[in-house]
Design a protein around this nucleic acid. Sequence first.
DNA 1: GAGTCACTCGTAATTAACTA
DNA 2: TAGTTAATTACGAGTGACTC
Length: 301
Amino acid sequence: MKELWSKEQEIRFFTEFRKSAAPEQLFYLSDDNRYYAYWPKSYSGSKSTLQARNALIGDYTEKWSADLLSEFAQSNGYHVVKGAVCEELGLPQKSPADVAICRTKNVYQKAEDILLIIEVKMSIVWNWELQLQAHGEKLVCLGDYTTHRGNPGLLRSDTVLKAIGKCLNVRISSFKASGIPIIVLGNTPITRNYYEKVDHLKRGGIIQGFWSVNPKPLDKSLTPRLLNNGEESIKATEGLGFYRFDTYDEFLKKLEELFREEREFFSSMRTEDELGKFIEIANREATYEKKAEKFLTLIRG
DNA sequence: GAGTCACTCGTAATTAACTA
DNA sequence: TAGTTAATTACGAGTGACTC
């Protein structure tokens, strides 16, 4: 049984990379010689911007996401591919799919063998202090993302926009992309400003969901911790464009749902007269599937 | 070795919301 | 209406991987 994102995963990240990286590569060093993962909001000393950690986080979270999907893929006879390349779908070697579920295990994929594309946008969510001690070292959690200056993962508008851009690039690359679902996988909520936008993206068939695999991004004290806008971490948006998973089973269920039905993305800018004609022609076909096929052929013609 | 790109995150600048 | 605070956007930073 796989586990979703939690403090445990972040401890593993720091523990793993501390074997090969100096504390200064993973933590900020404050004026009073303390190592912080993020600058605490209460800290007022001199600050720097840590860059050496970025690529490590990207790599770690992509591997972790691939592992999270591996059981599901295997049980269905598919493969999880990290960094899948498919020129046809606008996924060149320079900007491959972070993770994909495919029919084969090759990095180089044909469009028809790709079943799901996943864009991973994850960060370190909590703040941590590395305490060096005489006998080893200790990681102490200092608080959730409301307590530090960092704005992790999908809480950043530019991260969300970048994810949308990449997904859109795949969608418009080829008609072969129109049946492949695309998911943005994160470990934070999204900001209120994007609630309606992610729902529109889902309804429009561009991105099938912004999924958070972090069940408890906020620490709760005896009284529930509220965000500035007066709400706790959001479970889902109205149109399910954003969805937070609380258990691995729930995640599996949603994945199965995604694979169960074949979908077709289409977009167009046609006059009502043209659309009416297309519908009339398509309606002459015998079955709903045939009607849809005919309609899509006409609209793409 | 130069150039390009993508990674994430700090912060300046801008916009929105609130208060007196 | 002006001043203040909060929220959001956009830019640019260092690094490693990659290509030529």
